[in-house]
Structures are given as C-alpha cells and as structure tokens.
Design a protein around this nucleic acid. Structure first.
Lengths: 223, 223
DNA sequence: CGAGACACGTGACGC
DNA sequence: TGCGTCACGTGTCTC
C-alpha cells in the first residue's frame, strides 16, 4: 500500500525529471481512503478524511512542482536536495544582486566617460581591470575515448572573450578542438580536451580557480 | 501531545518571524519518543525510531529556515504560503534575467557608440612579440539586412586565439554574433557584424591593418 | 461547518 | 550497517 511513495522516490532520484507533468496516477485515492477509515462507521467522516488526504496530496504535489520550477531557473545546480535547491536559489539571487551592482557601476563609468571629451581616458579606465568574467554555467564531461568536453557559458562583457582564451591558453591543456560562439549577451565556449576520466574533476577545479584568479588577482588562489 | 505543532503554527502565521533561530524547544524529544513507541518492546528499535524522528525534525527545520531565507532575499512578498514563496522567487529570478538582458543591451549600445571617434591606439600594450598571426584567408561579405560576415582562417600558433579576439575587440564593431573554431592546426573565425554594404571594404582594410599592426607594431600602419 | 495550510510521526529507499 | 531524504496519512489550527 506504500507503492505510491515509491513512485515519488523515483521522481526525485532517478532520471525521469523531464516529464514532471505526467505522474498523475492518483485516481484510485477515493477507493483507498475508504479502506483506511476502518474505525469510523460514519460515511461523512470518511468522506472528510479522504478529502483531506487528496487535498494534502495536491498541496504536496504543487509544492514539489514549484520547487522543480525553481530549480529549472537556477543554473549550476549540483545537488537535488530540496534544501540544496532552495540554498542554490538564494545564492544565485544574491549573485545576481552583486552582478547587477557591478554592471550598473560599469554603465555609470561608461556614461561618465562619454560625458567627458576624452575618449582615451575612458577606455583605459574601463579596459584596465573591470568587468570580471561572470560564469553562468560550467560543465565538464567525460565522453570516452580519452576526451573530455568542457562547456562554459558566461555573460559577454568587455574583453571577456580575450580573457577566456587566455585562461584556457594558460592551462596548457591538450586541446583537440575549441569553439566560442557569442549570442544575445552570452558567450558559450566548448573545448574538447585529451584527458582521462580521472582528470575530469581536477580539470573543473583548475578552470574555476584560473577564472577566479583572473577575476581577482589580489587573492592568492594559486593552491 | 500535539502542542509542538501548535508552536510551529505560530511560527508560520503570526508575527514571530524575526527570531527564526530560537525555537529550539525540542529538548524533551527523547522522553516523548519512548512514549510513542508502545508497540515495539525492543529497546534498540525504539532508539532507532527516535533517531529517525529527531533527524526528520531537523530536516524539516532546516528546510523551513532555507525557505525563510529565500523569502528574505526576494522583495515584495505578499503571501506567506510555502508555495507562494517559491513562486515569487521564481518570478523574481526571471525578472532579474530580463533586467540583465536589458542592461547588457544598453551596455553594448553604449560601447558601440563610443567607437565612433577613436583614432588613438586602443591597446597600447598588446606585447607578445613572438608568433605573429598568419592569415590564410580573409573574406568579408555583405549578406543583406545590414549584416556583414567576416570569415577569417589562420594557422594556430601560441596565443593566436587571444590575439584574434583582441583584434576584433579593439575594432569596436557592432558584433551580432561571433564564432571561433579550432581544428587540425587551423583557426577559423566567423563574425556577423551590423554594417552597411559600403562599409564592407573599409572593414576589410581595418581588419588587415589591425592584424598587421599587431604583428609588427613598429611600422606606422595606423591609417 | 468545510477548505486550506502546516508540522508531525512513520515506513521505505539509497548510499 | 546506520544516516539522510522522501512521500504519505493524520491531527490541529485559522479563516
């Protein structure tokens, strides 16, 4: 009688995440509810209990759908925990807040630079060390045949493409083929690298630290 | 025996939201757990059951704290429903996404607006003296709809990709979308640029001179 | 009174 | 083996 719970187990922990709509297999609830209410001979009470059960079920279902929707709008989600999903969402919102401030500062700088008649000064101040790389997603996958694919998405800022290339150039990897494409304010870089499966995680760490070090040269991130 | 639930009721629906930390009034859990387990005579089983109970309690508590924290980073929250909190968070994140796109478009416009009058050398220190860019093919084509496509092939050397990006970055073009792919010692860069047909030839000259200037900064190639 | 929202204890499942 | 996570049914409160 607990098999319904089992289905939901699969909902959370296996790979059927892409059809969150069609697990509406609750049609036999009414029949079951009568079975549970063996202590109360009153029909009205059992009806109320079943109502409560199905209502609660719908509430939980709605909540899970909401949670799943929240997960879908937050990039870079690692763990599928309910708590982790909410935590990642919080971190992401705070990240967006910081990013908004950064971008607005950049806009202010650009505007104030336009006001002045000195384009040289403007460009130097903007180019020097502003607009860090904002990584939106970083995915490192082992594809077999000793090849690892790195897929990186970030927002397009000033010199972002240059810095991105510098990062991968500095890591001295065995790059098979690389590709950068830019669209609608985004930058997507895909790199095929010759490496074993064990080097995958290490590679991801390396890339992250390299980008972090480039964004903030002051901190001694070099392990 | 259900008074604990009552406290939590107040936690959600009254005004004690500001002390989400100090409702640690679960100290008598162990004593109660033994009471609940009246069906199992085994002491070890009751211990396990109580462990599960307190663990589950902590899990729920953590989840509620997370949800509360999520609520605190999302402005303009009207309803206190769990589902509504998550929904508002989703809407807020999507709102931030749209806003980010708008602002980035604004930045792009601002940057391309600066490009108008800037005869001075942009990057005075590109440095890197070795391995010049060896252009194998440069094709500039007008595609209609005010778009010009630049297709450039060169041999892959050290930092070639970086330099290539720098070149196009320094020209301050209205780039619609760009793409670099590397294969078998070659580098192919494709750039879609917003420009009229008349600017086509001028564009080709600009790119050639920029690359030449980068390869040999000593010669006064700057128009 | 019912409808909705919540916390609780419980059994099950995976690591 | 425990430990963490989950969905479930239930009792209780508020509107």
């Amino acid at each position: 009688m607990e098999n319904i719970g089992d289905e939901y187990k699969n909902y959370w922990e296996t790979n059927m995440f892409l059809q969150t709509q069609e697990l509406d297999s609750w049609g036999l609830d009414e029949a079951l509810s009568g079975y549970y209410d063996s202590s109360s001979p009153d029909g009205a009470a059992s009806s109320a209990a079943s109502k409560n059960i199905v209502s609660e079920r719908n509430r939980r279902k709605k909540l899970n759908e909401r949670l799943f929707a929240l997960r879908s709008v937050v990039p870079n989600i690692s763990k599928m925990d309910k708590a982790s999903i909410i935590k990642d969402a919080i971190d992401y919102i705070q990240h967006l807040h910081e990013q908004e401030k950064t971008i607005q500062a950049e806009i202010m700088e650009l505007e104030s630079g336009v006001m002045k008649k000195n384009p040289k000064q403007l460009h130097d101040s903007v180019t020097s060390r502003n607009s860090p790389i904002e990584v939106l997603e970083l995915r490192v996958t082992y594809m077999g045949e000793k090849t690892v694919v790195v897929s990186l998405t970030c927002s397009k800022r000033t010199d972002t493409m240059v810095k991105l290339c510098e990062v991968f150039e500095s890591l001295k990897l065995k790059i098979i083929t690389a590709n950068i494409t830019s669209f609608s304010g985004r930058l997507l870089k895909t790199v095929f690298i010759e490496a074993n499966e064990e080097e995958k995680d290490d590679l991801q760490i390396k890339i992250q630290t390299a980008i972090a070090a480039l964004n903030d040269p002051l901190s001694p991130m070099s392990i």
